[in-house]
């Protein structure tokens, strides 16, 4: 018996029960299954496969809805969210939500593609940024060069985002009428419990965006000033950010 191929084929059939006949014809002979395994798969009643598939998907839809961040749930119409979850479950049969830090990103991206309200899109960008952050970790080996801590990240969103999030964190509906321009860089970092969000100057964003374990703060600052001489008079301020970030363990 070729258990791995048999399981692969069974899961394929369960996830796509409707195109099983075409798939049998095109693929089943290529899988290296024994005649008994082929016969066993062909013997699976289509109605039964569809019932299993349908039940599995009902469960997935409820999980997709349940795992939408609370901030977004407040902003989204529940009926629309349920519809989107159903479409997503059917369109992406392999999509899931665990582990959250990687599996939730495509689901949030799908939601973003359905939404036109720019302030809600900003909240999605914020939630996407949070997915990658982890405060807790085992000690890491020391490394050369400077980078943002694994608990911190940067992103760009509208200037109204902090007020929107403040309202949402207090479970209140925010005004979605504020300005959406100019776009603003934010530094987001995860504490033991709550995340901290701070708007930052574009020049600081420029430096943080280039830290990746290569080079040091002074090198990137010089590069910034070479490319953007207009921030020369901000040199002292930009230098001062490095110890500020280090004190909060946001650089490593």
């Amino acid at each position: 018996m070729s258990l791995a191929a048999y399981q692969d084929a069974y899961l394929r059939l369960m996830l796509y029960p409707r195109d099983r006949e075409d798939w049998y014809a095109g693929n089943l002979p290529l899988l290296g299954l024994t005649p008994a395994e082929e016969a066993a798969l062909r013997a699976l009643p289509r109605e039964r496969l569809e019932a299993i598939s349908s039940s599995v998907n009902l469960g997935r839809i409820s999980v997709f809805i349940a795992t939408v961040p609370a901030t977004l749930k407040l902003l989204l119409d529940p009926e629309k969210l349920a519809q989107w979850a159903e479409i997503y479950a059917h369109q992406y049969p392999l999509a899931g939500v665990y582990p959250r830090e990687t599996a939730m990103a495509p689901w949030l991206a799908f939601l973003a593609a359905q939404i036109e309200q720019p302030h809600i899109l900003d909240v999605i960008v914020y939630e996407q940024a949070r997915l990658g952050l982890s405060y807790y970790r085992k000690p890491q080996p020391l490394h050369e060069g400077l980078r943002l801590s694994s608990r911190a990240t940067i992103f760009v969103a509208g200037p109204h985002l902090p007020q929107i999030l403040q309202a949402l964190w207090h479970e209140q509906l925010p005004s979605l009428e504020g300005p959406i321009e100019p776009r603003q860089g934010y530094l987001l970092w995860q504490g033991p419990q709550i995340p901290e969000l701070m708007p930052i100057h574009w020049a600081l964003y420029w430096i943080l965006n280039r830290l990746g374990g290569l080079g040091n703060w002074a090198q990137w600052l010089e590069q910034l000033i070479t490319e953007h001489p207009e921030v020369e008079d901000q040199r002292a301020t930009l230098q001062a950010w490095e110890p500020w970030l280090r004190t909060r363990y946001l650089l490593e």
Binding site: A4, Q7, D8, Y10, L11, R12, M14, L15, I52, V56, G59, R60, V63, L94, G96, Y98
Partner: peptide, 11 residues
Amino acid sequence: RSGDFKTYSLN
């Protein structure tokens, strides 16, 4: 899960 699929169901 199998080589190609991950279903989140208990098969």
